[in-house]
Nucleic acid binder design. Structure first.
Length: 431
RNA sequence: GGCCCUAUCGUCUAAUGGUUAGGACGGCGCCCUCUCACGGCGCAAAUCGGGGUUCGAAUCCCCGUAGGGUCACCA
């Protein structure tokens, strides 16, 4: 069986769109599942709208997601001669003809395809047979001049020359397929297999676009989403391997992916579910890896000791960055007596006595004994006998200086014996 | 409007003629608890409508209805 070749052909006329990323993912998954490869090219025949910065954004986004393509990236704008050769052939054998420009430019000629006005049927791997009557298309334009081919012509020639066997693209291309089929026939090319995947929809069920909020991959990256989560979530929008499992790595998706399980109907993009996937994948990162990503995300140094605390709470790296500031318990803190007394609910005498008692309790504990579990077993019996609230609250605030924080055992273990006792002493003093 | 596509909880989905229609997100409630989270348990919530076919239909067929895509010298 011939090697399977898919392709991802974005036009660099905007930042890497989330829907485009999913199309790339499906092509990647299908190719790799079958031991083939995904090719990459820029469709920049529209010179006006194509921009280098968009090319950069797309290339970086692809790399960030971990979707490697065959080293064949090129631009359609650099292949004029190839298109010209085929275009001339079409004119020569009468399949295309030059016609007057219908717009204002005088004397200009465009090339139109001579439509045979017939019915075409193609098989779609996700939708079955689809039939069109091409008559309504008329003699559509395929090139502005001999040197400026339009989309349909360039696509068909590139796919044939690159040996593309499977075209997997959004369903907004279904109606484009008829023109391309006609061109493929006229050029004598082999017809590839088609699979039109459902669109990613906005909450109002229309095609997801800028007016609905964030649509480019880089925006999600900036919001603290990790590629593992995007890949996992996007793969499950419009495709499902069956069963109830939801968490997959890119490699696992690759093993499972088949076109016959791609859905027919559009899927609404839901940021909350994406956020859940992000949290799950974030939790699966090792502390070292997590620290690295957080450093990269914030561009600042990260105290590795507090990463485990952040990891179990932050759903995104942006939230982790926020907690990083909030959990800066190790730095200088000051005490507000009202806070130590839980806004007056605890009497000054009571809090101060318990804190003193805790210091006495902790004094004999060796440095190595300052683990959260150890400390809990030492402090809890005392707290239980005296009342948890009046013991634990002042202690936690003494250590964190804050209204909200992790539990006092975790904090004490984090800062060690010396700092713990010093903070308790200072808290007593401030009372 | 023409052509094309689609239709299971609010959302993502499971089910490939036989299930009390399952799971997840979100929501709500309870538990855990010194705080904020995390976590655990539970509840509500769906087969668009109408006809067939069949012993039996979410599933197959037809007709409606609704939604979407596309109708460029853009891709």
């Amino acid at each position: 069986m011939a090697k399977i070749i898919t392709r991802f052909p974005p036009s660099p006329t905007g930042n890497f769109h989330i829907g485009s990323a999913r199309t790339a993912l499906f092509n990647y998954l299908f190719a790799n599942h079958n031991g083939g490869e995904m090719l990459f090219r820029f469709e920049d025949t529209d010179r006006e709208r194509s921009k280098p910065e968009f090319e950069k954004d797309i290339i970086e986004g692809l790399a960030w997601l971990g979707l490697h393509t065959a080293p064949s990236a090129f631009r359609q704008s650099e292949r004029t001669e190839i298109y010209k050769k085929h275009l001339l052939k079409l004119i020569e054998n009468g399949a295309a003809f030059e016609a007057e420009d219908s717009t204002t430019t005088l004397g200009m000629k465009v090339v139109r395809f001579k439509n045979p006005n017939k019915t075409v049927t193609f098989h779609d791997a996700v939708r079955g047979d689809i039939t069109f009557d091409t008559t309504e298309l008329g003699d559509f334009i395929i090139a502005r001049t001999h040197d400026l081919p339009l989309y349909h012509l360039a696509v068909v020639i590139d796919d044939a020359e690159m040996g593309v066997t499977h075209i997997i693209r959004g369903e907004d291309h279904i109606s484009n397929t008829q023109r391309q089929l006609l061109l493929i026939e006229a050029l004598g090319f082999v017809r590839p297999e088609y699979a039109h995947i459902p669109l990613i929809l906005a909450p109002d069920k229309s095609k997801l676009s800028k007016r609905h909020g964030a649509v480019s991959l880089s925006e999600y990256r900036a919001q603290g989403f990790v590629p593992e989560a995007l890949v996992n979530y996007l793969a499950l929008l419009g495709w499902n391997p069956g069963g109830e499992r939801e968490l997959y790595t890119l490699g696992e998706l690759e093993k499972e992916f088949t076109l016959d399980r791609v859905h027919k109907s559009g899927a609404i993009f839901n940021i909350e579910k994406l956020t859940w996937f992000n949290f799950e994948h974030l939790k699966q990162l090792s502390n070292e890896e997590y620290t690295m990503r957080l450093k990269e995300f914030t561009g600042r140094d990260v105290d590795a000791r507090i990463v485990p605390l952040i990891k179990e709470r932050a759903q995104t790296l942006a939230e982790a960055a926020r907690l990083l500031g909030e959990y800066d318990f190790l730095g200088a803190i000051s005490y507000a007596p009202e806070l130590l007394l839980q806004g007056g609910k605890i009497a000054t005498e009571v809090a101060s006595n318990h804190l003193r008692a805790l210091a006495v309790l902790l004094e004999p504990v060796p440095d190595e004994g300052f683990s959260a579990a150890q400390l809990k077993s030492i402090i809890m019996p005392y707290a239980d006998s005296q009342g948890r609230g009046v013991v634990l609250w002042p202690l936690r605030v003494a250590l964190s200086g804050r209204e909200k924080s992790p539990d006092p055992f975790t904090l004490a273990a984090l800062m060690g014996k010396k700092e713990t006792l010093a903070r308790i002493a200072r808290a007593v003093e401030s009372l």
